[in-house]
């Protein structure tokens, strides 16, 4: 709800290296996030391309229309973990924790990562989510993830029929 600007500096503090360049990411609800250019371009292909298209970072504000402030904050927090660690272990663990604790948030974070083309983070998150139900039967998946079957018996029959051609 708050509209005041939030300072989330991804990576080192700005005081240590005052010359560090920053840009502003604007969440869909208007909140502003100041981020270090190197740290965000390290993750987001979209922003990297944007900066290169704009020919610089001076006063650059990037509105992220599909991403709410809490989701953006969470995403930047995870980027921070990722940027600080050379291996993926730590960030994988964080993604796992988030998925267990707040699946809703994780799904939104995943969508946001896809939107800003944070390819390697997105890829890693997809792997964590896939690991959650790999090797399970249909019933196990439904029960485990609490998904309701919305197929009718006829529709299921039709899926079978649609695939039979390959085995004729």
């Amino acid at each position: 709800m708050s509209t005041e600007s939030k300072e989330i500096l991804v990576g080192e503090s700005s005081q240590a290296k005052p010359e560090k360049k920053t840009i502003v990411l604007m969440a869909s609800d208007g909140d502003e996030f100041v981020v270090d250019v190197d740290d965000i371009t390290n993750q987001s292909e979209m922003i990297r391309n944007l900066i290169s298209d704009m020919g610089g970072t001076d006063g650059l504000q990037v509105p992220l229309l599909n991403v709410t402030a809490p989701v953006l904050a969470k995403l930047l927090e995870l980027f921070n973990v990722s940027n600080k660690n050379d291996d993926d272990e730590e960030v994988t663990q964080k993604v796992k924790e988030l998925m267990e604790a707040e699946l809703n948030m994780m799904i939104d974070v995943l969508g946001a990562a896809n939107y800003i083309e944070a390819t390697s983070f997105f890829d890693l998150s997809c792997k964590v989510l896939a690991d959650k139900f790999k090797g399970m039967s249909v019933e196990e998946v439904r029960e485990f993830l609490n998904i309701e079957c919305d197929f009718t018996e006829e529709e299921l029959q039709q899926i079978h029929a649609e695939n039979a051609w390959a085995f004729d």
Partner: peptide
């Protein structure tokens, strides 16, 4: 993107029949 991390076994036996 999540499903492409799965094996062909999951992709044929479970995933399509969930919903």
């Amino acid at each position: 993107h999540i499903f492409r991390k799965l094996s062909l076994e999951d992709l044929t036996l479970s995933v399509p029949f969930v919903c």
